[in-house]
């Protein structure tokens, strides 16, 4: 098996809207891939196509080396969730997982307790899911996905609704899963999150893939970082900036100035400000290079 996910020429329309428009996607085994895009870019629709929840107008999907036959085939070795994780609200978390374990084959039934512990819901296993918060349902969604010992995880915004600690744990979990040989494809609209977890990224806009490759390549193509700087004399600082090469400066619409420069030139600018008697009161990264790249790629 050379690819975990292989989608070729996928097209899906809802009425006049082409939600997925000629998407080719390849994910290698044990890779952890971020699927990025703004709302409405087609990420969730693409995941639904991969799961076979919806049928493409054109194109084909192969998961774990097996061609998916329309919407009737079994998803052996594939797990995950799309949009938010949903369960039967009138049943407890444990009962939900036990039922899902049956639908996955008898071998998975014994791990329910272990998985509830894994996602931090051991104490809430007896509670009805109808009383769970969104974050708790997301955790349960991950447990439900892991129940069937997947070799490919397809997750739609898995950190949505999680608190900061839960988000950190989820990211760590995804990395550990990938390290253990599980292929992970997860969607997000947060570039920073993808940076934390992934080695490769696919960026979508208006149903099409506008970037696909390693993060290092994206960084290489990214523009210099942009910082926001607030000084004791912004007019003087602007004059000084014009004398330094490789530095672009413009007024920030909110406060201070925006400086685009690589690290060395930014250092030189800050030192020059100090020598000129201009105090630097604030200096922060306004937008990371990857975020800048993301916005450039996804802006209409």
């Amino acid at each position: 098996m050379s690819t975990a996910v292989e989608a070729l020429g996928l097209v899906k329309c809802f009425g006049a809207i082409r939600a997925v428009d000629g998407v080719d996607l390849t994910v290698r085994p044990a890779e952890i891939r971020g699927l990025l895009g703004p709302n409405g870019a087609g990420k969730t629709t693409l995941l639904r196509l991969l799961f076979g929840l919806i049928r493409p107008e054109r194109g084909s999907v192969s998961l774990l080396g097996r061609q998916q036959d329309g919407t009737d085939g079994r998803l052996d070795g594939v797990a995950g969730f799309v949009e938010d994780a949903r369960f039967y609200p009138y049943l407890s978390a444990r009962h939900n997982l036990e039922l899902l374990a049956r639908l996955d084959g008898l071998g998975a039934r014994g791990r329910v307790g272990e998985l509830l512990e894994l996602v931090g819901l051991a104490k809430d296993g007896g509670r009805k899911v109808g009383t769970f918060s969104t974050g708790m349902r997301q955790r349960l969604g991950l447990a439900a996905a892991l129940l069937r010992a997947p070799r490919l995880l397809l997750l739609d915004e898995p950190t949505a609704g999680l608190d900061p600690e839960g988000t950190r744990e989820m990211r760590r979990l995804l990395r550990e899963l990938a390290a253990s040989g599980v292929t992970v494809l997860f969607s997000s609209h947060d570039m920073a999150e993808v940076e934390h977890v992934c080695e490769t990224v696919t960026i979508m806009r208006a149903g099409q893939i506008v970037w696909d490759g390693p993060l290092t390549a994206l960084r290489a193509e990214a523009p210099v970082p942009e910082h926001r700087i607030v000084t004791s004399d912004d007019v003087r600082a602007a004059e000084l900036a014009r004398t330094l090469p490789g530095l672009r400066l413009e007024a920030d619409p909110e406060r201070g100035l925006r400086v685009s420069a690589d690290a060395e030139r930014l250092d030189a600018f800050v030192i020059a400000l100090g020598r000129a008697g201009v105090a630097v009161r604030e200096l922060e990264l306004a937008e990371s290079p990857l975020e800048t790249m993301f916005f450039r790629l996804t802006s209409q």
Partner: peptide
């Protein structure tokens, strides 16, 4: 989450049998 206490190897090696319609009936 308490992932540190669990080995992921156990998850990827579990044998899953195709459940079939009978299991769906039970569920």
């Amino acid at each position: 989450m308490t992932s540190s206490s669990v080995s992921f190897d156990t998850f990827v090696e579990v044998e899953v049998k195709p459940p079939g319609a009978a299991q769906v009936v039970r569920v």
